[in-house]
Amino acid sequence: PDLGLTQLFADPNLIENLKKNPKTSEMMKDPQLVAKLIGYKQNPQAIGQDLFTDPRLMTIMATLMGVDL
């Protein structure tokens, strides 16, 4: 199971919303991170391994779920 990750990354406004959010806007200036996020739309399971190697993803996930870290 993808634990709902498919829906989190399926939002067509995902990148724009993250660019507008004060907690994630600075991160979204990294083209490699943006490319990763776009890739998760097609393969949400890929985030599982990346969560352990890129701490920014935890902040992004929390933001998408509405959790304040």
Rank of each mutant, 00 (worst) to 15 (best):
K41M: 15
P55Q: 06
P55R: 05
L69N: 15
I15L: 10
I47P: 05
D68I: 03
T24D: 00
N17T: 14
R56E: 05
F52Q: 14
D30Q: 02
T24I: 06
N17K: 09
N13T: 10
M61A: 13
L37Y: 00
L14E: 01
R56H: 09
T63W: 05
K20F: 06
D11A: 06
P31N: 09
T59H: 07
M58Y: 12
E16I: 06
R56S: 05
K23Q: 15
A10K: 10
V67Q: 12
M28A: 02
F52C: 09
L14R: 01
L33Q: 01
D54Y: 02
M27A: 06
L64M: 09
M65P: 03
Q42W: 07
Q32S: 12
T63D: 03
T59V: 13
L5K: 06
M61E: 01
Q32I: 13
Q45N: 12
A62S: 15
Y40T: 02
L14G: 02
D11L: 04
L64F: 06
L5C: 10
I15V: 09
A46G: 07
P1T: 15
K19G: 07
L64K: 01
L5P: 09
K23G: 09
I38E: 15
E16H: 08
R56Q: 10
M61P: 00
L37S: 00
L14V: 10
K41R: 12
V34G: 01
T24F: 07
N17V: 11
L51K: 05
V67S: 12
I38M: 15
N21H: 07
F9T: 02
P12S: 08
G4V: 13
N13G: 08
I47E: 04
Q49I: 13
A10D: 12
T53S: 12
Q45R: 03
N17C: 05
A35P: 00
M27P: 01
K20D: 10
Q32T: 10
D50N: 05
D30K: 01
I38S: 09
L14Y: 11
K19V: 10
M28Y: 01
T53P: 02
Q7K: 15
T59G: 04
M65N: 07
G66C: 08
G66L: 11
Y40V: 04
G39M: 14
K36M: 09
T6D: 13
G66P: 07
L37V: 06
T63K: 02
P44Q: 06
N43F: 09
G39K: 13
